[in-house]
Design a protein around this nucleic acid. Sequence first.
DNA 1: CTATTTCGTAAGTACCCACTTACAGTATGG
DNA 2: CCATACTGTAAGTGGGTACTTACGAAATAG
Lengths: 197, 197
Amino acid sequence: MARPSQSAQRRKQLLPVIARTFAELGYRRATTAELAQRCKVRENILYRLWPDKKAMFVAAIEYVYQLSADIWQRILSEGDGKAGAALRLLQYEAEHYGESGLHPIIFAGLSDTDEPEIHEALEKMYGRFHRFIRRQIAVHRGDKGKRSSPDAELCAWAIVGLGNVANISRELGLLTDRRRKRLFADVGSLLLDGQSR
Amino acid sequence: MARPSQSAQRRKQLLPVIARTFAELGYRRATTAELAQRCKVRENILYRLWPDKKAMFVAAIEYVYQLSADIWQRILSEGDGKAGAALRLLQYEAEHYGESGLHPIIFAGLSDTDEPEIHEALEKMYGRFHRFIRRQIAVHRGDKGKRSSPDAELCAWAIVGLGNVANISRELGLLTDRRRKRLFADVGSLLLDGQSR
DNA sequence: CTATTTCGTAAGTACCCACTTACAGTATGG
DNA sequence: CCATACTGTAAGTGGGTACTTACGAAATAG
């Protein structure tokens, strides 16, 4: 045998560029030619690392999720006690949401394709984000949360929705940065608590 | 002169089909061939009614907005007094949101294109939806709304976000119909009132 | 009737895109 | 050292897609 493969390493190296390209251009407009150019390689090299364009996209989604998940995990562990973890996360997102420029990838595959693999990957990602947020809400509400309304699951979906409008409003220039921060902070904490009856 | 043009009438006739096709397939996947087939005409007929595909899409967006706006206007006028108008709208959307199958058109042009015309049309549509919702919130809150938090503008964006997750969760099968209804009803009314301090 | 314009059918064009193939260079294990 | 795999370069291919052209038929104003 000869020359050990560096494919895994190379994939890791290129993934950030790929993800950003998909996030910026969407699935269709991110042509393989464009992806290759931004990666500073030829197209067939990409095809040696992934079987097809779909796979590159799925990998990019995975990468974006991991990035967020790692940051959130860090914020959780930074807290002294467990108190206020949800609020800290909210505040972090209010301050930094969209900074990476990678989040629009969430929309990229939605109407752009009907590939089941992409469908599944998006479904998984939404599900994981939602479960994470939901758990934080539950912890935040504690015992008295049992009488809160709406329940944690719905409020978590609403917070996901907050992220979506944040993305869209950024793309279309509908909200200033200051207002977007307040959207996360104010509406976010309202959703966190719900309304106890 | 001879044979008066029926273009305007024909456009009106085809627009629902065009809008539905864009909503189902997104901008790119809704090819001119597919659009023509669903309209049961040849492609060049579409090109006699609109200058290009962009224009068809913009017209479709306009059409979808008008459809919603008309329904909302009807619901507003159906009310005896002005009381509870916002709640009636919310309840209607909880019950019927997504029925038309046309709402996903909102996402279709977001990552699919960078055409400024489409960008503008979407921006306008989001702006009009938001302004409408915002006004309803303000009316609903009345005078005491002045001390409500978060303010009506942000809550209106959050409700727009609710619509977005409703769309996405429908497309990805993340929420049952029952839960989606509760999402609108429960979280919606929470956002309507805000939290007075 | 007839000139003019619209309407429908069919074919075509130029371009783009995902993906492939062919081949030369290079590093590593035996 | 050399056979074997990996890595990079360059060109190509088949299919699709937005948009066009050509032309005959139908309809209406004068």
